[in-house]
């Protein structure tokens, strides 16, 4: 038996909106300690990893480990039934054929229930090695989204260069070439800070199209954390306060 209740249902709505354009069918791993999900996009260029801790739920019960195969596209349709200030409860029995989702608004006395049919997915589970990232950039999530959108109109590929003084996003295309360079900015307004932790410079190229999809998650956190290591995938990380973390891994473009 699995049951989890989230008072701030909006967070779950945002999480589903943040991943629905990247992954299609996912296995949701339920355990007594929390909920996790790992899935690749259809072209195997990006990997989404979500971890939610049981502590972040108003009520959480999972007697055993369970795997719930879910079509994210269908889950997104069901989540549309939720108002932004609904409380959301997820329920599934052992060997369940569906996931019960309940939206409650205690103020308006409105309750919505939906049994989402589960699917069987034989997805390969990848092991993500613990990596010591030699460059970690913490940047305002709105600002990073804006930079990616603007650069995408100039090129499909962005080269990210880090060193102790700045992080640089450069593009080159038939329009011309240029770069956005962000230095360390410890402005008193916390959410405007750009923090660089660089022990080793990194220079890699990535497809901006994926960064734009990842940035859908910027509604979850005012900061985006970029973790880079030469020859390793980029990690774009969004911390979900009091609940967990949503990570996107993007394979770099490499010389053939």
């Amino acid at each position: 038996m699995f049951e989890a209740k989230l008072t701030e249902g909006l967070i779950l709505k945002k999480i589903v909106e943040s991943i629905k354009d990247i992954v299609t069918d996912v296995n949701i791993d339920i355990s007594p300690s929390g909920i996790s999900l790992q899935a690749m996009d259809s072209s195997h260029v990006a990997l989404v990893s979500l971890n939610l801790s049981m502590d972040g739920f108003e009520h959480y019960r999972a007697d055993t480990n369970m795997v719930l195969g879910v079509s994210i596209a269908n889950l997104a349709k069901v989540m549309k039934l939720a108002d932004n200030n609904d409380q959301i409860t997820l329920q599934a029995d052992q060997e369940a054929t569906h996931l019960k989702i309940i939206f409650e608004n205690p103020k308006t006395e409105r309750t919505t229930e939906f049994n989402l049919n589960l699917i069987t997915i034989d997805s390969e589970h990848l092991a993500i090695p613990e990596t010591e990232y030699s460059s970690v950039v913490t940047i305002n999530s709105g600002e990073f989204s804006k930079i990616c959108k603007e650069l995408f109109s100039l090129s499909e590929t962005v080269q990210i260069t880090t060193n102790t003084d700045y992080v640089q996003f450069s593009v080159e295309g038939e329009v011309g070439s240029g770069q956005v360079r962000l230095g360390h900015n410890d402005s008193e307004k916390k959410e405007d800070q750009t923090i660089l932790e660089v022990s080793e410079s990194v220079q890699q190229q990535f497809a901006i199209r994926y960064l734009n999809m990842f940035n859908k998650a910027s509604t979850l956190s005012s900061f985006t954390r970029l973790c880079l290591h030469q020859e390793q995938p980029l990690v774009v990380e969004f911390k979900i306060d009091n609940l967990g973390v949503l990570k996107y891994f993007l394979a770099p473009k490499i010389s053939d």
């Binding site: 195997h44 092991a127 993500i128 090695p129 390793q232 995938p233 891994f249 993007l250």
Partner: peptide, 14 residues
């Protein structure tokens, strides 16, 4: 020209 790598190249099947 740089080619898009496959993410599975970096992560291994347990």
């Amino acid at each position: 020209l740089k080619l898009q790598a496959d993410i599975r190249k970096f992560f291994f099947k347990p």
